[in-house]
Design a binder for these strands. Structure first.
Lengths: 216, 216
DNA sequence: GTATGTGAAGTTATTCACAGCG
DNA sequence: CGCTGTGAATAACTTCACATAC
């Protein structure tokens, strides 16, 4: 389906990823009291070209002013609308290790549209522990928490052996998006989206880049 | 410069990222005792096509056997050679919060070529704390640790306001690659590589995907 | 039969460059 | 003038399809 104006309803994946980056910079600018921003400034933030930025933003409408730039607050709202984070998302964390604790205590999620409403584990020693704003509960209580809080997103920080099995529980409970920190590919139904976060891979990319200096 | 055989000495960025994913799957396979793998199997892991996998692997030589597949151990060695992780890298962490603790206690880095040799902060209450295998030290001791251990990579987990200033200290101490968890773009000399890790962005991608079901 | 390696074709994404508006 | 929005050109990446080897 085509939109009346030249607005595509299918946004290229690289653009969607960059939208998050723009949003981070806009948040920083807003915190500093800036009201306007140019494609040039946003381009510097993502270390890309200004044409790239304008293309990305033009994908879903025209709200820059020629000769002037973009309104910071407007752009924040527009990007949050695209990303779906003008509404608050409830999120659960499964696997109550150190990483889970770090995530639960991290302040940034809340302001950006994500509320961590529960954390689960099977280890009896962890259950009952208070961790930031939530208490660790047994994984058997998970489905109920997900249903009652209309949770659609989950963060998986369980060990690699447990990850597929846990993902299945999440899917059965109605979860539609999973951020997975374990190094295993999840087998889930097509309507469930998985986002793999591999911290080792990030170090490996650096190792590659540092070992191959010609790489730009 | 061209290589004698059809081997490019410049590997496309998406391919380098996939190499890490292949490596994770190969590690899993090796742990299960598998000795061979096909492009089809690797493709399933990354949810891509088998031609893609073969292209990626053919970028740096031919070591599959037609009609058979690839040797798991060989492939592990080859990919680690490309990524530069057959040698061990010493890494420091700056910013001794919860995330730092999670990273220091994470077992996966060591086996994959990364040894965390130090962690630093400015908060006097944190200094002296034992955290996994290392003790938190004052940031003034950082340059010496980096020099003595020939550290080239660093992980930044300091708050966003401190990040540029801390990055400069790292660069001055000779660091060449930075994994940055703060939502700010670092201004560093061109020989220093930065890898931005934005956990909020990952949730935003999921939010977008879940909100736009038609997206494949 | 099975699975790789790779030209050729196709697709997607980025950059150029400039018209158009403030 | 400055900065956006965008066709047109370019570059990057992916997929097809098949010869080749086991």
């Amino acid at each position: 389906m085509d939109h009346p104006q030249g607005i595509s309803d299918t946004i290229p994946n690289p653009s969607v990823r960059r939208l998050s980056a723009y949003l981070r910079h806009l948040e920083n600018l807003a915190a500093c009291g800036a009201t306007r921003v140019s494609s040039k400034q946003l381009a510097e933030y993502i270390k890309g070209g200004d044409a790239q930025v304008r293309r990305d933003l033009a994908l879903f409408g025209q709200f820059g002013r020629r000769g002037v730039g973009y309104e910071v607050q407007d752009l924040i709202q527009v990007i949050r609308t695209i990303l779906g984070t003008r509404v608050q998302w409830n999120v659960v964390v499964v696997g109550a290790g150190q990483l889970c604790q770090a995530l639960l205590r991290y302040r940034g999620f809340q302001d950006r549209g994500f509320t961590l409403v529960g954390a689960f584990d099977t280890d009896p020693r962890k259950i009952g522990t208070q961790c930031g704003p939530v208490t660790i509960r047994h994984i058997d209580a998970m489905a109920e928490v997900i249903r009652k809080n209309e949770v659609r997103l989950a963060i998986l920080t369980v060990p690699v052996q447990a990850v597929q099995h846990t993902a299945e529980k999440l899917v059965a409970a109605g979860i539609e998006g999973i951020m997975n920190f374990a190094s295993a590919s999840l087998d889930v139904p097509p309507h469930v989206h998985v986002n793999q976060v591999d911290l080792t891979a990030h170090l490996e990319q650096l190792s590659y880049q540092v070992s191959n200096p010609q790489t730009p």
